[in-house]
């Protein structure tokens, strides 16, 4: 599938910036008499304005000046990318529910399956690395990590 990246990007940020702009007053509530330029609204407002104007400029570039960068998007590749992102989400949940090391072991096995990696030695090394990372963070660098095992 061919995607017109300037047009698509322009529409996304035009819509996104507009929605955020509409939400500005309800999501950034300032109390008392404070000048807009000193308020907490000014930077989000500037960011939203740039997103809206930038989005519009990208659409104009694409539609009026025909300046476009066509991106070839292969659906099979995107399904694969979504599967990887899905595994990341699963890993985050596994860490939350069953702890870092056990979650990491499950993640390593699932990622190896996705990569079609059947080399047992490589999988075992990656599992050992997961335990190594836990020990490195907690014992060497004294940085807190989720529990080893949340039984």
């Amino acid at each position: 599938m061919k995607v017109r990246s300037n047009l698509a990007g322009g529409i996304i940020f035009l819509v996104f910036g507009t929605i955020l702009m509409l939400l500005l007053n309800s999501q950034v509530i300032t109390y008392g008499k404070i000048h807009f330029l000193q308020s907490a609204k000014v930077l989000p407002f500037m960011a939203e304005i740039v997103m809206i104007i930038g989005g519009l400029l990208l659409i104009i570039q694409s539609v009026v000046f025909k300046k476009e960068k066509i991106v070839e998007v292969c659906w099979e590749d995107q399904k694969y990318a979504l599967a990887v992102i899905g595994l990341f989400a699963l890993f985050a949940l596994l860490i939350y529910f069953i702890g870092f090391v056990v979650g990491a072991l499950v993640f390593v096995v699932l990622m190896s399956r996705l990569y079609k990696n059947r080399n047992i030695v490589e999988i075992v090394i990656l599992c050992a690395l997961a335990i190594g990372i836990y020990l490195l963070f907690t014992l060497v660098f004294h940085v807190q990590l989720p529990a080893f095992w949340r039984g």
């Binding site: 890993f91 985050a92 860490i95 939350y96 870092f100 990491a104 990622m111 990569y115 963070f137 989720p146």
Partner: peptide, 24 residues
């Protein structure tokens, strides 16, 4: 193999930032 190893470091690093599962 590198991709899996980097992912493990990423999740550990994100949690280590504040000890907050939400950030991970």
């Amino acid at each position: 193999n590198l991709g899996v190893a980097i992912s493990l470091f990423c999740f550990a690093g994100a949690f280590a930032n504040s000890g907050n599962v939400w950030e991970m």
